[in-house]
Amino acid sequence: MTPLLSVQDITKTYGARIGCTGVSFDLYPSEVMGIVGESGSGKTTLLNCLAGYLEPDTGQVIFDTRTDGPMDTVTMSEPERRMLGRTDWAFVHQHASDGLRMSVSAGGNIGERLMALGNRHYGSIRGDAMNWLGRVEIDTDRIDDRPTAFSGGMQQRLQIARNLVTGPRLVFMDEPTGGLDVSVQARLLDLLRGLVREMGLSAIIVTHDLAVVRLLADRLMVMKDGHVVEAGLTDQVLDDPQHAYTQLLVSSVLQV
């Protein structure tokens, strides 16, 4: 089987400071991988390099495109990368306001990616938007409201709808449940799990919340100071951590 995403030796430094270094892994279709580590460990830098928001100093990010097979997204042209960002890739930001257009209606937010792909029929775009609002559990009569009128949890769900409407194959998520209260978190996790299974999505989720990765991720990568210190099956890494840092991380979780 061809990996959907093959990452080879990604390094990104900020001057003399290391963002992340020597990261390699293969992600297969419908696999969900979690990246955990304390803040400053290079999780987000890595995610941004993978998603094309940052240019890595060295390394390759090879994505199995629908039309042309495996291509290195680091060296591909900007228009090609943007096209990928609108079709096969999706990015769910930690702060919904970074991923939404706050001054455009909820329906407009969902419709944007569809229109970018050439959809022009207002009725069908609105229909899709209605359908997706329902799937992310937002009342469809809120379709003409702006996200500024939504709660944090609703904004996050709207961001997910906006991203998934075009049926991407790979979703990058940066702390998708960060800053939400626990009841909203549980609902969002449940929703994400369902969508991942229904749509056969692959996803890379950056978080510092070990409970989130236990629920969502098949595999786990643990980062410290820009290095990957441990990787493996999620429950194995959490229940039988091998590296000193992972043991510290796991034993530091507060019991409820």
Binding site: G232, L233, D235, Q236, D239, D240, Q242
Partner: peptide, 9 residues
């Protein structure tokens, strides 16, 4: 048991 299940390495 956990070793067989792959939960322990």
């Amino acid at each position: 048991m956990r070793v067989i299940y792959g939960n322990y390495l």
